Amino acid sequence: MFGFIFSLLIGALAGSIAGRIMGSETSALRNIVLGILGSFVGGILFGLVGLSATGLVGEIIVSVIGACVCIWAGRKLFR
């Protein structure tokens, strides 16, 4: 249970960081949701190329990259 809550917190942090990196002008709640989704997307993308994240910093980096991908994809789909 602690791992799941920790993953949600990392995803929320990643969404906030990714929103700033991508210059997203959406609500903070949407960035947090995209960050949580991005943590899963980042894990899948990095897994496909044979990389994995270790430690807190590695997980945050993977999550931020995944959230940036989600924000980019959302922009392309909904514009």
Results as ranks from 00 to 15, higher is better:
residue 6 F to C: 04
residue 7 S to N: 09
residue 7 S to M: 05
residue 7 S to F: 10
residue 7 S to H: 08
residue 7 S to K: 11
residue 8 L to A: 11
residue 8 L to H: 05
residue 9 L to R: 08
residue 12 A to K: 06
residue 12 A to N: 10
residue 13 L to H: 04
residue 13 L to N: 03
residue 14 A to K: 03
residue 14 A to C: 06
residue 15 G to P: 08
residue 16 S to I: 12
residue 16 S to R: 08
residue 17 I to A: 12
residue 17 I to W: 09
residue 18 A to F: 04
residue 18 A to R: 07
residue 18 A to H: 10
residue 19 G to V: 07
residue 20 R to F: 14
residue 20 R to G: 11
residue 21 I to T: 10
residue 22 M to R: 12
residue 22 M to P: 01
residue 22 M to V: 02
residue 23 G to E: 10
residue 23 G to D: 12
residue 24 S to A: 12
residue 27 S to L: 06
residue 27 S to M: 09
residue 28 A to E: 15
residue 29 L to I: 15
residue 30 R to N: 09
residue 30 R to M: 09
residue 30 R to G: 02
residue 31 N to G: 03
residue 31 N to F: 01
residue 34 L to M: 15
residue 34 L to G: 04
residue 34 L to R: 10
residue 35 G to D: 11
residue 36 I to A: 12
residue 37 L to S: 12
residue 39 S to I: 06
residue 40 F to C: 03
residue 40 F to H: 06
residue 42 G to I: 01
residue 44 I to W: 01
residue 44 I to A: 10
residue 44 I to Y: 07
residue 44 I to K: 00
residue 44 I to F: 12
residue 45 L to K: 01
residue 45 L to G: 04
residue 46 F to E: 15
residue 47 G to V: 05
residue 48 L to I: 13
residue 48 L to R: 07
residue 48 L to Y: 09
residue 50 G to N: 04
residue 50 G to A: 03
residue 50 G to D: 02
residue 51 L to P: 00
residue 53 A to W: 03
residue 53 A to G: 05
residue 54 T to S: 14
residue 55 G to H: 07
residue 55 G to F: 02
residue 57 V to F: 13
residue 57 V to C: 00
residue 58 G to H: 07
residue 59 E to N: 14
residue 61 I to D: 03
residue 61 I to L: 15
residue 61 I to Q: 03
residue 62 V to C: 09
residue 63 S to H: 06
residue 64 V to M: 04
residue 64 V to C: 05
residue 65 I to H: 01
residue 65 I to F: 14
residue 66 G to T: 01
residue 67 A to V: 04
residue 69 V to P: 00
residue 70 C to A: 15
residue 70 C to Y: 00
residue 70 C to T: 13
residue 71 I to V: 13
residue 73 A to V: 13
residue 73 A to C: 01
residue 73 A to S: 10
residue 73 A to R: 00
residue 74 G to P: 00
residue 74 G to V: 00
residue 74 G to D: 15
residue 75 R to G: 14
residue 77 L to H: 02
residue 78 F to M: 12
